[in-house]
């Protein structure tokens, strides 16, 4: 478990990258940190291996402050994959992949065994690729080696800084899938920085949404989709993406604003919140003494909805009209 305890980071130019952040990253899960650029997500991640030093606060790994470990030792115990891959071009793949074990002083045989095993895991035939140089490989293959290199020293924690964002869409998708299935096997604590919400939703167990140095929401992809904590999170995920991930019945009443009527057409009225789902609305309308719902948004009544208008909304959706969004 990685715990951030009231961490603040101020840069010399006065910008505050992190504002009193406290959070916990669970062991053995893939946690994605996401947010617009400049939100502090990379700074947050780089603090775990002390590439960035907090101005205030502390970071604890398994309740032990990382300040107590020598920073070089700390970094050797944490895998690190960076966006621009950063393989050493003058070393063969074998040397690159075995770098951390070598720094840690492993024997050659142990290193070789480990590297070959990992190469096979990421789908690169060791005999073919180990003697090659990084520039002889495609971007996707290079980043696979980047992942091998990060895992070679058998770390418990792996940090990934937008590792797939420089790749073409096809390689990216493939590597996302591979990472997901790899993670299910190896169960490392992976901290994955990204600005791509699709990527986060696809691969992460937990997502930390950040904005301007503060955490807006922490939750599973499901939590984010179904219960966005605020408008920022909702906007950041994007209504379209939320809709894609939800069935029509899971949508919220307020998404149907254009189907609200202002006329009170019945006396058999029940009250519903605009943030309730359409599913809830239908089950309420099924009750014998209810055929109209009054919609409350916060403390105001914003309109009425009945079975007919719900039906119209369904038809509009069927016809591909998304004007309810």
């Amino acid at each position: 478990m990685i715990r951030f305890d009231q961490v603040t980071k101020k840069f010399p130019d006065g910008t505050e990258a992190l504002k009193n952040v406290s959070l916990t990253i669970p062991t053995g899960e893939l946690t994605a940190i996401i947010g617009p650029s400049g939100c502090g997500k990379t700074t947050l991640m780089k603090m775990i291996n002390r590439l960035e030093i907090p101005t205030n606060g502390d970071i604890l790994i398994d309740e032990k402050s990382i300040k107590e470990t020598d920073q070089v030792e700390l970094r050797r115990s944490i895998g690190y994959v960076i966006q621009r891959i950063g393989l050493l071009p003058h070393m063969t793949i074998e040397k690159n992949a075995g770098l951390v074990p070598k720094l840690k002083g492993w024997s050659d045989e142990k290193t070789q065994l480990r590297v070959r095993e990992l190469m096979t895991t990421v789908g690169l035939e060791p005999d073919i690729y180990l003697p090659r140089y990084p520039l002889e490989l495609s971007g996707g293959q290079q980043q696979r080696i980047g992942v091998v290199r990060a895992l070679a020293g058998d770390p418990n924690i792996v940090l990934m800084d937008e590792p797939f964002s420089a790749l073409d869409p096809i390689s990216r998708e493939q590597l996302q899938k591979e990472l997901r299935s790899l993670q299910q096997r190896i169960q490392k604590t992976i901290v994955f920085v990204t600005h791509d919400m699709d990527e986060a939703l696809k691969i992460a167990d937990n997502i930390i949404v950040m904005r301007e140095g503060e955490v807006e929401q922490i939750g599973s992809p499901d939590d984010l989709i179904h219960e966005p904590a605020n408008d920022f999170v909702r906007d950041f995920i994007g209504q379209e993406r939320i809709n894609r991930q939800r069935t029509f019945a899971q949508r919220k009443i307020h998404e149907l604003t254009s189907f609200f009527s202002q006329a009170r057409t019945s006396e058999q009225i029940a009250e519903i919140s605009s943030t309730d789902s359409i599913e809830t609305a239908i089950s309420m309308l099924e009750k014998p003494n209810v055929n109209l719902l009054a919609i409350r948004h916060k403390d105001e009544f914003v309109g009425y909805i009945d079975q007919t208008s719900l039906l119209r909304a369904v038809i509009a959706k069927e016809e591909g009209g998304n004007h309810a969004d």
Partner: peptide
């Protein structure tokens, strides 16, 4: 940066 991050 990769070198630093790996603990060189």
């Amino acid at each position: 940066e990769a070198g630093r991050g790996m603990g060189m």
